[in-house]
């Protein structure tokens, strides 16, 4: 029974991931490819064209840790790995798409994995809160997922194109994770609890990461045209909204269809 529940979630995620791949290829990937043509071009008048810091000091996470090996294993992305695709085109041997797949296949696989992952997270939250996605509330689940994973974190860290200026990668990933988890908790409190204190606490949790502030780049100069960035931010948020609505609706439909009678 547990396995069946998980399989239902994975199935919904795979469907949403396939859908997302089509949406991405139509709206998002062309903008990424276009931005990459600017990314490798030097910024006029600046010796260091790339917006990300060329070298950065290790943050406090790395130094003075009680478990250095554990810390390094759990570290998100090191600066050396950052920006691999540009390096790859410039002839770095490191990295590369796994199993020598094409770029599209890599994107498809990553979408399927991400879709299954978000599908499982959605199902898990539904089980733990005793409010699993159904046909009736599936779209609401999807919308809340989109808000907490995409829209609310994007207020601090908008979806960015390759070549955009950005703060330290590790700091941004930590902030993004915190913003996502706190937003999900806050929305959960607002949506699932009737008490006024819970709704107030939920709003507080939503605001917390933004009061703290997302890591911002020191220098805003970018070789990528701003119009591309604006189009990309809208396209990324629109496609992810569609992804979450599909995920929520399909999860609900599968739950209603197959798990009720089991």
């Amino acid at each position: 029974m547990i396995v069946k529940t998980l399989l239902a979630a994975i199935c919904a995620g795979l469907i949403a991931g396939s859908f997302m791949t089509a949406a991405q290829e139509l709206r998002v990937v062309p903008l990424i490819l276009e931005a990459e043509t600017y990314e490798t071009a030097p910024l006029p008048g600046a010796p260091e064209a790339e917006g990300y810091p060329a070298a950065h000091e290790h943050s406090s996470r790395a130094g003075g840790s009680l478990f250095p090996s554990l810390a390094s294993a759990l570290q998100l992305v090191t600066p050396a790995y950052a920006h691999e695709s540009a390096g790859q085109e410039a002839g770095h041997a490191d990295g590369g798409i796994m199993f020598g797949l094409s770029r599209f296949s890599g994107t498809l696989i990553a979408n399927l994995v991400t879709g299954a992952g978000f599908g499982l997270l959605l199902a898990g939250l539904g089980l733990v809160t005793s409010t699993p996605p159904t046909m009736r509330n599936g779209l609401v689940w999807g919308a809340l997922g989109w808000l907490s994973v995409h829209m609310l974190p994007a207020l601090g860290l908008p979806p960015e194109l390759p070549g955009f200026p950005a703060g330290d990668l590790g700091d941004r990933q930590i902030w993004w994770l915190m913003a996502t988890v706190l937003s999900a908790l806050g929305l959960g409190l607002i949506a699932l609890r009737k008490e006024i204190w819970a709704k107030a606490a939920g709003l507080g949790l939503l605001a917390l990461p933004h009061l703290y502030g997302a890591p911002q780049p020191g220098d805003l100069a970018s070789p990528v045209p701003a119009v591309l960035g604006a189009e990309f931010a809208v396209a990324a948020l629109a496609t992810t909204l569609a992804f979450w609505l599909v995920l929520g609706a399909v999860s609900g439909a599968i739950n209603d269809r197959f798990l009720n009678t089991a």
Partner: peptide
Amino acid sequence: DTAHDVRHSF
């Protein structure tokens, strides 16, 4: 690298 475009668009 495999998930590059996905990371950006998500």
